[in-house]
């Protein structure tokens, strides 16, 4: 994709004649550029914020009307009462689920402590590739997107995988993070299995995948690794120990 600044200039009519001709020609012959330009217009292009706002306003109007309609129907038709009960039950189940998710999140927040890169870097410097070192620096600077980008340049490096997973956790991409941790666990013959298992359990917990989280935490609790005590604490909180 070309520099998006050019897209902006094109939309606002700021491209000089030569550049303008070249840009228009590129749009005609380069389908991927045309697709990216189209996407740019629908995400960053002019007045898109206001258009998104309009869509939200319309949704709000619809919700108000739908609510009004639901109330009037519920008094007219008995079947609607049954529907109401179902809705209430769903809301109830939803609330319970939400409560569970909230408590899982609270546990996650309590036990997730961002890993420092420096210790691992020192202990494994010899085996590190340059992109992983660069990635670590980005990780330390809390620039997680850039860190992931770097780690992806060394896809077989297990430490890169671990910190890629940790960066994803920081970005709230828990499902993607579990994939990284699982790869480390599956590899098995490395220094990072304990950490991978621990963080994978936390991700499962955060996603609300209780059974997977418990299974994984029990494995950690049965072991004599550094995360044993913490795993037991969480299992106790979940009434599973």
């Amino acid at each position: 994709m070309k520099d998006l600044e050019k897209f902006k200039k094109y939309i606002s009519g700021e491209l000089e004649e030569g550049d303008l001709w070249e840009f228009k020609k590129s749009l005609e012959v380069d389908a991927s550029l045309a697709a990216e330009f189209e996407l740019f217009k629908s995400t960053i292009g002019s007045h898109i914020n206001k258009k998104h706002q309009l869509m939200n306003e319309l949704n709000d109007i619809r919700q108000r009307h739908s609510r009004g309609r639901q109330i009037s129907i519920s008094w007219k038709r008995i079947s609607a009462i049954a529907a109401g009960v179902v809705i209430l039950l769903s809301i109830g189940i939803g609330l319970i689920k939400m409560q569970h998710n909230t408590s899982y999140q609270a546990l996650y927040d309590q036990f997730f402590i961002a890993e420092s890169a420096s210790f691992n870097v020192r202990s494994a410097t010899n085996s590190l590739e340059q992109p992983v070192l660069d990635g670590m620096q980005f990780y330390e600077l809390h620039n997680y997107d850039a860190a992931i980008e770097m780690f992806e340049k060394a896809p077989n490096n297990l430490m890169g995988k671990l910190y890629s997973g940790l960066s994803m956790m920081e970005l709230g991409e828990f499902e993607e993070a579990t994939i990284k941790f699982e790869a480390i666990i599956k590899h098995n013959d490395n220094l990072f299995v304990d950490q991978a298992e621990w963080y994978q359990s936390l991700c499962q917990l955060r996603i609300g995948n209780r059974s997977n989280a418990i299974e994984s935490l029990q494995r950690i609790a049965d072991d004599n690794g550094v995360y044993k005590t913490k795993a037991i604490k969480i299992l106790k909180e979940l009434n599973e120990y």
Binding site: L4, E36, L39, T43, H142, N143, D145
Partner: peptide, 22 residues
């Protein structure tokens, strides 16, 4: 604001985000 080291890093990341979206 987002702790990128250069303007180019912003361009690269924005491009990456939009590609993901696309």
């Amino acid at each position: 604001k987002l702790n990128y080291l250069s303007n180019q890093a912003v361009y690269n990341q924005r491009r990456k985000c939009l590609r993901k979206l696309l």
